[in-house]
Design a protein around this nucleic acid. Structure first.
Lengths: 151, 151
DNA sequence: ATAGAACCTCAACATAGATTGAGGTCAAGT
DNA sequence: ACTTGACCTCAATCTATGTTGAGGTTCTAT
């Protein structure tokens, strides 16, 4: 049973509590911490302790992942959150805006791909040099190599 | 310099030619062959030879990958192409239709995610049990198998 | 005081999708 | 014949995103 020391009550969370409340495995939280996506401190007995903030962070991580954003980018985006204080609604909204743009671009890319799929796969134009499907001169095309998310 | 033996002229392609024309690395073609995505035969000197079909196949593979379909699924879809003959336009169209449905679903998912992003990240509802973003009871929820998300 | 749950570290394994390298062979031009 | 570039196989490595397990420690209830 997870019990919280009296002096911590309502203030900090153990890794097991975060796991239970956020729905991710303890091992995943270890992993996220190692990758710099979440931060915490240690108890006198070297156990992980987290502020309640971490629940929101983990929630954001999972949502961002569902949209296809890699962890490294999520980490960078989270790093833009304020250091000393608990992020407020405006802070989170900033993240949301950055990601929405990326999402918009990727939706446009997929939509474009879909619209061209029937026409191009069926026809003879699927050559490296000429086909619009092979040569996405459209969305994201100038981003160098592949879809760069939130660089 | 890549030279084609007279008897092969215009009929078969070496792995290097396929690489040059399709834009993928030789090692990747080895990899695709090992994974069953492309097939060919060997010359008397044990070198890979491919029918011209393979260029179309590789093109399809790259397009499908761009939409987020995993190689294993692409392999299965390509396996539905006719065995003895060169695939015709109708064959390719069949593939296109299968994938378009998947693409439609994923576009719907991302769109939904985007629409909820601002509202949900900024507000206090991002809890495991209550938030619509955390609990996708909507698009894709019953899709069971197949490529669900990129990344 | 002690059992057992929860925690710790570190290393290995898993999957997808390749890339790289070592060591050796084949083929074409001179 | 020789050189060179394209080719061969097989194993190792890489990134991303974790999971699993071994071996050891801490915490809390009884």
């Amino acid at each position: 049973m997870v019990r919280i020391a009296p002096e911590d009550h309502g203030r900090s969370l153990s890794v097991g509590e975060v796991a239970a409340r956020s729905g991710v495995a303890v091992s995943t939280l270890h992993f996220y911490e190692a990758k710099g996506l979440i931060r915490g401190w240690r108890s006198s007995g070297n156990q992980r302790r987290y502020a309640r903030d971490v629940l929101r962070r983990v929630a954001i991580i999972k949502v961002a992942q569902r949209t296809g954003i890699p962890l490294a980018d999520i980490r960078d985006a989270l790093a833009s959150l304020p250091d000393g204080r608990t992020p407020n609604a405006a802070d989170w909204r900033g993240l949301s805006e950055r990601w929405r743009e990326d999402l918009d671009r990727r939706i446009a890319l997929l939509t474009d791909l879909r619209d061209k799929l029937d026409g191009c796969i069926g026809c003879g134009c699927l050559s490296v040099s000429a086909c619009p499907l092979r040569n996405p001169g459209d969305v994201l095309s100038e981003s160098g190599s592949g879809p760069v998310l939130l660089g």
